[in-house]
Design a protein around this nucleic acid. Structure first.
Length: 463
RNA sequence: GGCUGGGUGGCAGAGUGGUCAUGCAACGGCCUGCAAAGCCGUCUACGUCGGUUCGAUUCCGACCCCAGCCUCCA
């Protein structure tokens, strides 16, 4: 039985789908005004694993991850770069798709965008206004939090506690500092849509309420995102959706811990964001994936070169175990599969699941010579379990050789052949000279029962 | 100040009332022409102070420290 930590209740709870056998999952995606950083990578990879595992359990998962393609930051960035908002967002959405693919993340079933749901957003604001949850002020429309008694339930804060540190921005006309904008009137030159309140654009929070309603319905099984969205974004979504729909909005809230750089949260505003694409170039997407899954999703994750390098060696170890087996039906030693499932069932404990994978890898290597048939089966089993985490799907040789072009590859093969002949002649001086030369060039040779294979030494330049 | 998470071996990171996490690194051994890889073993960890207990890293209490949120942020 799968249990998931619900940040609303603060406890692990059994997953009980609203409709038996089906799961509606909504995740807050990116605001498309810049390249994605490792914090985004964590959200993408973790929910990719959640979806893969739920499907493995037999659920029909409907996975929706939105894209915010209109907001203040997009407008500001488009202006500073000198392009229109649409061109800017298209560019960064395309970049996100590249990053996602590099991380082995399957695309969500739907990726609704705010600008294609303006009509639904306006309808929802009208409903809120009609029900007395919203008020107009100088062309803007605000949500009146005093009308929603449960406000603060998700962040475990009372309204007066939340108010403590607030200040009002110039140009706002809120009755209460905790009120938030549903609709913002357009200033000259800003992109705008017609509405009952005049030309303007949606506030940030309302889009998720409107899009989740129109893609998944009034009640969601799981809603997720980064820890920083808990307040105010998700709190506001609850206020909007429940005021509108009259039913509990979300069964389970999943919030991810931060990726940290040198003891501090990674954030664009702090200038310490590490882009996915930069690390993909250095380590390869699968290494990043293993790194991200090596820590439980709710814990903070410290991003360091040492940790990434350790992840690379770990991944290579697994691929080394996988290499050179005959095709076989997947199998496991007794208990492995159950322990893997138990780990995943316990709030998606991927670090523990990975530990089980490493134990399986060790057993596979141990039997390699004595029982090659069983060893091959275990290797196939390792690949299959790894696949549930979106790992170990590549050709082991290719992964370990990294980004070496074909010409270079042929050169290396030629030298290996030359060395093999030298070894046959017992001309070890010559053989070692060849090996040393390749080692200096970052190529490591491994002599095995099936001949000599080669791989990259590490440091820079994996696939 | 309020709220939310944390403090585990050289590093990363799970977990548990009394026998093993796991990975990376290091050291010793096996294997190897020598290596590399792999396998075996070693390196006897649980913030502090009390309490409960036959026994606590694990339960309870207090305290200290770290990160985050209370403003846009995955």
């Amino acid at each position: 039985m799968l249990h998931v930590f619900n940040s609303l209740s603060g406890e692990k709870e059994a997953l009980r789908p609203i409709h038996p056998g089906r799961i509606g999952l909504y995740v807050c995606g990116i605001t498309a005004y810049d390249y994605c950083h490792m914090g985004h990578a964590r959200v993408m990879v973790v929910f990719d694993v959640v979806v893969r595992y739920l499907r493995q359990l037999g659920y029909a998962v409907h996975y929706v991850r939105n894209i915010t393609d209109i907001d203040d930051k997009i407008i500001a960035r488009a202006r500073s770069v000198g392009v229109d908002e649409g061109a800017l967002t298209e560019r960064f959405i395309a970049a996100m798709r590249e990053d996602q693919a590099a991380l082995g993340v399957l695309p969500p079933d739907e990726e609704p965008r705010a600008t294609t749901h303006i009509r639904h957003i306006i309808e929802m604001i009208q409903q809120l206004e009609a029900a007395g949850y919203a008020y107009r002020a100088a062309g803007d429309v605000y949500y009146d939090v005093s009308r929603f008694p449960a406000y603060g339930a998700l962040s475990h804060m009372r309204l007066d506690e939340l108010r403590a540190g607030t200040r009002s921005e110039p140009g706002e006309h809120k009755r209460d500092p905790m009120d938030f904008a549903l609709w913002k009137s357009a200033k000259a030159g800003e992109p705008a849509w017609d509405s009952p309140w005049g030309p303007g654009r949606p506030g940030w929070h309302i889009e998720c309420s409107a899009m989740s309603l129109h893609t998944l319905g009034k009640e969601l099984d799981i809603h997720g995102g980064g820890m920083d969205l808990k307040f105010p974004h998700h709190e506001n979504e609850i206020a909007q959706s429940e005021a509108c729909n009259g039913v509990p909005f979300v069964r389970l809230w999943m919030h991810l811990g931060f990726v940290q750089v040198r003891e501090a949260k990674m954030a664009k505003s702090l200038g310490n964001a590490v882009l996915i694409r930069d690390l993909v170039a250095r380590f390869g997407g699968e290494v990043l994936r293993l790194f991200l899954l090596g820590t439980h999703y709710r814990s903070p994750l410290m991003l360091t070169d040492e940790a990434l390098e350790a992840a690379r060696r770990s991944l290579w170890r697994l691929y080394g175990t996988l290499a050179g087996h005959a095709p076989a039906e997947p199998a496991w030693p007794k208990g492995i599969e159950a322990r893997f499932a138990a780990a995943m069932d316990d709030d998606f404990n991927t670090p523990l699941a990975l530990a089980v994978l490493f134990e399986l890898a060790r057993e596979t290597s141990r039997l390699r010579r004595s029982e090659p048939g069983r060893s091959a089966q275990y290797a196939a089993g390792l690949r299959q379990l790894g696949g549930l985490l979106g790992l170990l799907g590549e050709d082991p040789e290719v992964v370990r050789r990294g980004a070496v072009d074909e010409r270079r590859s042929t050169e290396i093969e030629t030298l290996i052949t030359e060395r093999a002949e030298a070894r046959r002649r017992k001309d070890y001086a010559r053989a070692d000279a060849i090996r040393d030369r390749l080692a200096q060039e970052g190529i490591v040779l491994e002599d095995g029962p099936a001949g000599t294979i080669w791989r990259l030494a590490g440091e820079e330049g994996s696939s």
